[in-house]
Amino acid sequence: MMQIGKMGEFQLDVLREVGNIGAGNATTALSHLIQKEIDMTVPQVKIISFHEIADFIGGDEVVVIAVFLRVEGDCPGNMFFILDIPSADYLLEHLMGTLPKRSEESQFTEMELSALHEIGNILAGSYLSSLADFTKLNMQPTVPSLAIDMAGALLSYGLIELGQAGDYALTIDTAFFEGNENVRGHFFLIPDPDSFETLFTSLGVPLHGDY
């Protein structure tokens, strides 16, 4: 198994490109969905210890909407699509033409949840299918699951598989935003530790050292 900590700058660059391709496609899909232009950041590839992951989103206790799915096939891993509550409101308003009304910040109606679920499904699907095309690897998403809760509680779930192998995770994080920053969210791809070798081999990238 490849040591996550021993990757060179070249390997990290490749992973950044992986994030770029996947998130680029997903962002385009989102842009079509709400008929707005969406920009994205250059993906950040980071090796982080478990307690740091929620800091990306603003802290352990920040309430977020997360769509989670397992990636199965040649290159297994976990994937999250994360939105904050105001972004979800904005998306729903543009998709369904109604302003969400609710007493508590994170109490969505069944219909709204279903719509958010579907958005997550479409975006994660386009992320993965572009990645699968690019790498020629077989990658299949499981049916996604949606939850609204503390970021730390949700993201830690995606790290369990890794927890059995080491104390660090490699995440490919791409943030996206609408022009006026009404929609902000993240894609996290967290490949299983064994998947890096498959990924690099299929792309013809050497497994060790800098190139």
Binding site: G59, D60, E61, D149, M150, G152, A153, S156
Partner: peptide, 16 residues
């Protein structure tokens, strides 16, 4: 570990 009067806190317990 903590002794009185201190407190201990952990955030964002999910499946943990």
């Amino acid at each position: 570990v903590a002794k009185s009067p201190d407190k201990i806190r952990t955030t964002g317990l999910g499946s943990c």
